[in-house]
Simulated assay, not measured.
Amino acid sequence: MTSYVVKKPSELSLSQFAAILQLWQIEEWLHLTHSEFVDLFYNNEFHMLVDETSTVLSVSRINYNFQISISDSVHTIAELVGFVSQKPRTGHGSLLIESILDYLQERGIEAIGFCDLSSRAFYEKCGIEIFPGHSRFIKEKVNGLWVDSSDEDILNLTLTGHTRNIIQGLNAYSPAYLISG
Rank of each mutant, 00 (worst) to 15 (best):
G108Q: 09
I167S: 00
D151F: 14
L159Q: 06
G181K: 08
M1G: 02
Y4C: 03
I26P: 04
S60K: 04
I97W: 13
E52K: 12
T53N: 15
T90I: 01
V81R: 15
V59W: 02
I167A: 00
Y173N: 10
D51R: 03
I97M: 15
Y173F: 14
S3L: 14
I130K: 05
S73A: 09
F114Y: 12
F17Y: 15
V84H: 09
G127W: 05
L145K: 13
I100T: 13
I26G: 06
I138K: 04
A121C: 06
L101H: 08
L80D: 14
G82Q: 12
V81S: 15
A172V: 14
L49S: 11
T2A: 06
I77C: 10
L117W: 05
I167R: 00
L157C: 04
L49P: 04
I68T: 09
E28I: 09
A176W: 02
N171T: 01
L95Q: 15
N165W: 02
I68P: 05
S60Y: 06
V81F: 02
D102E: 12
G169W: 05
F46S: 00
E52Y: 08
G127L: 05
N171A: 01
P88L: 02
I128M: 10
E11D: 13
V38S: 06
F122G: 01
A78M: 11
H34W: 14
L49C: 10
H134Y: 06
L104W: 09
K7F: 04
R61D: 02
C126H: 00
A111Y: 09
Q16S: 05
A172M: 12
L117P: 06
Q86N: 13
V5S: 08
S58E: 10
D148Q: 15
S150Y: 09
G91I: 03
L170A: 03
G181C: 09
W24N: 14
S58H: 10
V84C: 11
Y177C: 01
D153E: 08
I112T: 04
I179Q: 04
L12P: 00
F66T: 09
H31E: 13
